[in-house]
C-alpha cells in the first residue's frame, strides 16, 4: 500500500478549553496512482484529514505513512490544491508556477521550461506573463493545479478545489483533471462535498460521518475499459451514497436549524394540488 492511515485521531482545543474531537479512528489505504475521494457533510473534518496527510497539521494519535515513511512536516512530495486558488498576487503566472521548482533548487531556465510545458497542459500558455487578478476564477484554478503538478508530486491533495466555481467551469475542469490524471498517473486524494463530483472523478470513495469524523462507508467505482463510467453506474452509486449520507446530513441540519427540522419529507405521496392524483 502506498498511503496508509492507521487509527488517526485529531483533537482541537476549543475556546472554552474543552477538547473537541474532530477525527476519530480514521484508517484507510490508497494505492499508487489511485484517485480517491472523501465525501462528507460540512464540518466532518474532511479538510482537516487532508491537512494531516499534507503535514500542515499534526495528528493527535495514530500514524500516517507514505511508502512506509511517517509524515511529520509539509513537503513538496505532497502538494495541496486549496479551495481558493492561493496564487501569490505579487507574482505573475509563470513565477507562481516556478515557485516550488526554484525552492527545489532547480536552475531557473529548466524551471521555466517545465512550467511553460505544464501551463500548456492546462491550456494557459498565453497567460504566462499575466498577473493572477487578470485571470478568471477557472483560469486561476488551472494555474493552481499546474503549480501543484509541475512539482511531480507523489500525491496530489485537493481540498474542494472546484467548490467556488460555476457549474460550467467545474465540468470543464473535471475533464481536464481526469485527462491530466491519466497522463501523469499521479495519486490523487480529493476532498469534496459534491457526491456527483466524487462519483465522476474517482475510483474509490470514502464517505465520512460527522462529529466526530469517522469513516462510514467505502465505495469502489466500477469503470469501463476506457476509464469512463457509464451513467447508469454513476446514478446508482450516487443514490447509494446519498442514502448513506442522509442520516449524517440530518444530524448536521438539526444542529444548525433546531431539533424540529426534518430533512426527509413525509413518506406519503401528495401532489401539489392536494388531491391524490386522480381528481378525488
Amino acid at each position: 500500500m502506498y498511503l496508509t492511515l492507521d487509527g488517526v485521531e485529531k483533537k482541537f482545543q476549543s475556546n472554552t478549553n474543552n477538547e473537541v474531537k474532530v477525527l476519530d479512528d480514521i484508517s484507510f489505504e490508497v494505492e499508487k496512482g489511485q484517485f480517491v475521494s472523501i465525501v462528507g457533510p460540512s464540518g466532518c473534518g474532511k479538510s482537516t484529514l487532508l491537512y494531516l496527510v499534507s503535514g500542515l497539521e499534526k495528528a493527535s494519535k495514530g500514524k500516517i505513512e507514505i511508502s512506509g515513511e511517517q509524515v511529520t512536516k509539509p513537503g513538496p512530495d505532497r502538494v495541496v490544491v486549496f479551495q481558493e486558488d492561493g496564487l501569490f498576487p505579487w507574482l505573475n503566472v509563470l513565477d507562481n508556477v516556478t515557485y516550488g521548482l526554484l525552492l527545489k533548487k532547480m536552475p531557473k531556465k529548466e524551471a521555466e521550461a517545465k512550467a511553460t510545458e505544464m501551463l500548456k497542459l492546462v491550456h494557459l500558455s498565453n497567460y504566462a506573463d499575466s498577473y493572477p487578478h487578470q485571470l478568471s476564477g477557472g483560469m486561476k484554478h488551472r494555474v493552481a493545479i499546474a503549480r501543484a503538478l509541475v512539482m511531480d508530486p507523489d500525491i496530489l491533495l485537493m481540498d474542494e478545489p472546484f467548490a467556488a466555481l460555476d457549474e460550467q467551469t467545474r465540468m470543464a475542469l473535471h475533464n481536464e483533471l481526469l485527462e491530466i490524471w491519466r497522463k501523469t498517473k499521479v495519486t490523487v486524494l480529493f476532498v469534496t462535498h459534491n457526491i456527483r463530483e466524487a462519483v465522476l472523478l474517482s475510483q474509490k470513495i470514502i464517505v465520512m460521518a460527522t462529529r466526530p469524523g469517522k469513516i462510514k462507508a467505502t465505495y469502489h467505482v466500477q469503470t469501463t475499459q476506457d476509464g469512463y463510467t457509464p451513467d447508469s453506474v454513476t446514478l446508482d452509486l450516487e443514490q447509494k451514497i446519498l442514502a448513506t449520507l442522509e442520516e449524517e446530513m440530518e444530524k448536521v441540519l438539526k444542529e444548525e436549524l433546531g431539533d424540529d427540522y426534518n430533512f426527509k419529507k413525509s413518506d406519503i405521496h401528495r401532489d401539489t394540488n392536494g388531491d391524490m392524483g386522480s381528481g378525488i
Partner: peptide
C-alpha cells in the same frame, strides 16, 4: 492560505 501554500512547497524560515 499564502503561508500554507508556501509551506506545502517546502518553504520555511527566512525563505
Amino acid at each position: 492560505l499564502y503561508q500554507r501554500v508556501a509551506r506545502t512547497y517546502g518553504s520555511s524560515g527566512f525563505h
